[in-house]
Design a protein around this nucleic acid. Structure first.
Lengths: 142, 142
DNA sequence: TTTAACTGTAACAAATATAATAACAGTATG
DNA sequence: CATACTGTTATTATATTTGTTACAGTTAAA
């Protein structure tokens, strides 16, 4: 799975965790442990989907624009990683005489698409707030 | 998802399709459209799981050793790709003071493991014989 | 008993994908 | 108008995936 999904989830959970629900790309990048530029790219995608709003210029940054209890990981997956389940490599060759060789890619493609739909159903169950809760639970277990 | 899974499924479907249920790595590689060496590596794994038997030497090759109606894609996934759902990259840092930063990796890890279990449940439904059937159906649609 | 056709495996090279970094235009604030 | 931000693209570095070669071991048949 695409790691932009991980960055998006982490960033939204971080914003949900902060009392003011705000942070700059530098702050998020430090928390996520990646480069601010990468955070900005992912957050740009989150903004386009409406989960956050951004404020440019001095004193700007990112602010949560959704209820963490209403946004599920499925929606974040759709925004960041849809289609990433299917491997880029595919087997067979369409112009082969063999039935298996020339139809396998299509059949596998269908299997991967269905699998991704199943994944979305599973991810639907977990909301941003649930992730934050689990993070807090994990802390207590230390 | 790992493409060894695709190669394994394609190879088993190809063996199931052949009337004698036998083929060499060269034949399979040509059908799958990859290198014989790669096929041998994946088939070696299939042999260890018991889905095929191999015969070395002249006139040797691979032979199906299971009922295609009983082996599901879940079993093949388990043999070839278990754990590949989780991205190798992970966010946060365990030694950070922030609760989110230091627990996020663990929480995401858990989410990916559960997601993989869900995937296995879905793959369980599809048997080698079903894939072959779909391949034949796809051919008819041409 | 030698040769040819096969698998098993490891090592290496090439191609591709991913992640980090740099650069800079645009924007808002004081 | 200087400063601190985002948005975006381009480039470089790193990791992963795939292809290829090589060769030892195995078996069957000439």
């Amino acid at each position: 799975m695409n790691s932009e999904f991980t960055i998006a989830v982490h960033s939204l959970v971080f914003l949900a965790y902060k009392t003011d629900h705000m942070a700059t790309s530098d702050m998020i990048a430090h928390n996520v442990n990646t480069h601010p530029s990468r955070v900005r790219k992912v957050m740009s995608c989150m903004r386009k989907s409406g989960y956050i709003v951004t404020k440019e210029g001095l004193g700007g940054g990112y602010m949560l624009n959704c209820n963490p209890e209403e946004v599920s990981l499925a929606e974040i997956y759709r925004a960041t990683s849809i289609g990433s389940m299917k491997p880029s490599w595919c087997s067979g060759k369409v112009d082969e005489a063999c039935v298996v060789a020339c139809n396998m890619a299509e059949v596998m493609d269908h299997i991967f698409c269905d699998a991704e739909q199943q994944l979305l159903i599973y991810l639907q169950q977990t909301k941003i707030s649930d992730v934050l809760e689990r993070v807090r639970d994990a802390q207590i277990q230390r």
